[in-house]
Design a protein around this nucleic acid. Structure first.
Lengths: 345, 345
DNA sequence: AAATGCATTGACAGCGCTGTCAATAGTTGT
DNA sequence: ACAACTATTGACAGCGCTGTCAATGCATTT
């Protein structure tokens, strides 16, 4: 299978390779007839431009990096990857994937990928942007970057951000429970200093405060470990110590899944005995039983914006950085019940 | 930031660019002193070779494609992606990801990626290799390929395979239940014509037969839909119609998770009232409550072999194809109990 | 009719590397 | 001491594309 090049197409269409190149890149100033002739030749020869030659010549890798901040096989990360991949493809870019979890020497790997012109810029997710060594090297090279769910702003560097308001999201979740008539609401989350976690807990507290309810430390479980375990053991402890809790707010949907298992294990039912709200709206949330009421974060939109802005920044380094907060929304499914309406108890 | 090239390194080390290239590629016939000098220069200049130039010049993309056969955010796919990525990185290759789920014109996209020299070969997972259009085009171009979990052999083409024995795996699972004393065992799986699913059901039947137990169609649920739902509704139906079942074999771990939820919802307990075995050993399996006894399939090894063999085939097109069956193993956790030992009932 | 402008096209020089082949130096054999 | 070899190194030609700039043709202007 001899490789088809511009040369072949040009010959077939009876034009110069530069003209074929123009048609390929939709550059102006090519007559319609010529364009048609070239397109025909391209189609007939089934020509696809050599991406390496393109990159070398243009100096653009046509690829963006994504550094995920959690295990690749977590629901959140894999959805982010899926959406980012989709957006890259749409823009004609390819995606270079990196994971802080699996790779040693991750900083080296990412920097080398940039230096080796394998990517034009990088999207950093949550914990990926926590790596000071990585960030300072990225800055030193002035690598176009956008951070998803930043834990903090980076004063020195010219970075862009896309995030959600975790505080508000948690507030929406807990406020919903309060509206349903719940008064004794527990909270289960990670024992982490990430603002993502602390904000969600703070939002829980805020919702309580706004309703004139007390924030009780003994109703707030902060546990370290695997998400499901955190939810399971957290719920067991909380419900054993305080059987009068009628609702539980879980810091993530994965935690919520552990919470559900715990509730069942205690011989209780969801939502009959205990209502549960999660956070993130991972794909499982709608699939499990009962379908989980949760706070949706628009990963698809976040990915779309991140990719679009990053590419724009690559094309125009003077592009102004962005700092967007995407809206979260309450998705009501079947894991909560209204207390007041239940006259049978 | 001026880009560092071979030229700069060569100048600094006082050699020709070709010699630097030799050191870079570990080619023979470079004296130790020269090598040291060049390495020093590379380190000092923080030089990283331009991958596009490399690809263009060598004609190798140094990249392999992975076409996943399930949603990217499924536990199986995301783990496969993670492991494949790891192996590619280890070999100095990059990974180009494709998903049959999200992408329209997937065939076109993959073929173009190959034609555009963005990848040297492709790994096809399960359903990805079911696409006749894609496969025939891949064959026409003689694209190096390896198929993970093939549904069938492809007589015409020179393809390699890595798979597991689904029949045996299911047999291991069900035989374990039988050894524990279970006699009335249900099976819940997808209503699919994929051999992956039919083999697992057949393995279930075989284990029963080998123990002299009857295979009963009314104990075998085949349902279409989302994994969790399949498990949930399948288990509800099965256990409602036949409350005397003491164990359930789920076709996948995701199905098993739905089964667990269903059992709890029916007011029963795992493993006290019903034992459950899954298949796949997804990362969740060990995290949930109770930790799921399941059949492990070595995705890490499968990915390692697939990547290694594919790269070898790329480097040597005459490399003999492989057709490997990787061993599955029973992972005993906490979702099954021994019936005979339970004297209290 | 000459001058000007614009749309269209092509020639050609790289981009940064690898592959080929020639050149050089050092070593061994006779 | 000279031929024959081997180890080491470099010169140079591409790989297939894009960017720059010049050339051409034609319509418009004065």
């Amino acid at each position: 299978m001899a490789r088809i090049t511009l040369e072949h197409v040009a010959q077939k269409a009876g034009v110069s390779i530069k003209t074929v190149s123009r048609v390929l890149n939709a550059e102006p100033n090519v007559s319609e007839e010529t364009t048609a002739r070239v397109r025909q030749a391209i189609a007939e020869l089934n020509y696809v431009p050599n991406s390496a030659a393109r990159s070398l010549s243009s100096g653009k890798a046509m690829s963006v990096g994504l550094v995920v901040g959690w295990p690749v096989n977590s629901p959140y990360s894999s959805t982010l990857i899926e959406q980012t991949l989709k957006e890259c493809t749409r823009h004609g870019y390819s995606l270079a994937l990196f994971s802080v979890e699996v790779e040693d020497a991750i900083t080296r790997r990412i920097i080398d990928a940039y230096l080796g012109r394998q990517m034009d810029g990088v999207i950093l997710d949550t914990r990926a942007a926590q790596d000071d060594e990585l960030m300072s090297q990225l800055d030193a090279l002035n690598v176009p970057q956008i951070i998803i769910h930043p834990d903090r702003r980076r004063v020195a560097a010219k970075a862009s951000y896309v995030q959600i308001d975790n505080h508000l999201g948690a507030w929406q979740a807990v406020n919903y429970l309060i509206q349903l008539g719940h008064r004794r609401i527990g909270c289960i989350s990670y024992d982490s200093s990430l603002t993502q976690e602390t904000d969600r807990i703070a939002g829980y507290g805020q919702a309580l405060a706004d309703a004139g309810l007390p924030f009780r430390e003994d109703r707030t479980m902060r546990k370290a470990g695997l998400p499901f375990r955190v939810g399971f053991s957290g719920a067991v402890e909380l419900l054993t110590a305080q059987p009068d809790l009628t609702a539980l707010f879980a810091g993530t949907d994965e935690i919520a899944m552990g919470v559900l298992a715990a509730i069942w294990n205690l011989g209780l039912r969801v939502p009959d005995d205990v209502s549960v709200v999660g956070f993130d709206d991972i794909s499982y949330a709608s699939m499990i039983a009962p379908p989980l009421t949760t706070i949706h974060q628009p990963i698809d939109e976040i990915a779309a914006i991140a990719v679009k802005h990053l590419i724009e920044t690559v094309d125009d380094p003077d592009r102004a950085p962005i700092d967007l907060v995407m809206p979260t929304s309450l998705v009501i499914r079947k894991s909560c019940r209204a207390l007041k309406l239940d006259v049978s108890q």
